[in-house]
Design a protein around this nucleic acid. Structure first.
Lengths: 144, 144
DNA sequence: GACCTTTTGACAATGGTTGTCATGCTACAT
DNA sequence: ATGTAGCATGACAACCATTGTCAAAAGGTC
């Protein structure tokens, strides 16, 4: 309902944005602005921290990357493979991410919203767990 | 699986904790540590900000309050009415909160997790929208 | 190349949250 | 009631992610 279709404001192509884009392309899992900045530094491509923040924010606003708040309150970004709305299941130890679509959940949230008269609803849903690989490593039984 | 049942560490009862508890009891919606601290000040019950943070954190650790990260990354707390796992639908403008239980969602997340071999899963789900009252006020049609 | 805008970057500023540590208070034993 | 031990408190500094500032640099155009 009312999906303000701003055709994504035209932007200039700069070395810095290309660099951020590149890292996002190569990175499978969620990454924080700070980490991304650190990686750029490592590669010798010096980009201002503020610029990284601005670039990621712009990408997020345009829906070209997914944003996720970690438990610590930091923002993490990730290039989304699919355009439609979807969610993520993230591994607590290695960060491996699985994109998941849940039509059922979408329907459910909508019905709940309608039931209570809420309009213009959105929602966030993230699943955290331990992926098979990490589970296998850190000892099967004897949790910790 | 391994629900580390720490019987809630015994704690001393202090004036400050009682004060925080009281505010939580009276507050229907999510409230940030800062706001809670401000309220205490208003009432003349001076409690250190650090103490408010510590108290809320402890309560959250013990599962006696729900924690929610706002879009801005701030933590908001709320006494949960029900003990079992549940979610919230929060109004963007007035903060009115509805507690909702979604057995279907729980089952869905579990099946998704199992499907991908993830174990020890947890999840966060929050719904944001505009409650009927606020929707009525801020003009029906002509969004903004 | 000249020109106008957008973008960048270094750094300050902000704002929430946590750490520090001397002092205060609770709980419990005397 | 008094003493005692140790957790709790509070004032403030320290942190850390993020945002604001603004002059200098780069992109796009003519």
């Amino acid at each position: 309902m009312s999906p303000q279709e701003q055709p994504v404001k035209e932007q200039r192509r700069t070395r810095q944005r290309a660099a951020v884009d590149e890292v996002l392309d190569e990175t499978e899992d969620f990454i924080s602005a700070q980490d991304l900045h650190a990686i750029l530094r490592t590669r010798g491509m010096s980009v201002g921290l503020a610029t990284v923040y601005r670039t990621l924010q712009t990408l997020a606003d345009d829906g070209r990357v997914d944003v996720l708040r970690t438990a610590g309150g930091e923002a993490a970004y990730r290039r989304c493979a699919r355009d439609e709305h979807h969610h993520h299941m993230v591994c607590r130890s290695c960060g491996a991410t699985v994109e998941i679509a849940g039509p059922a959940v979408e329907r459910w949230t909508n019905s709940v919203a309608k039931e209570h008269g809420y309009v213009d609803v959105s929602h966030t849903l993230e699943i955290f767990g331990t992926c098979p690989r990490c589970a296998a490593q850190s000892g099967g039984p004897a949790g910790r």
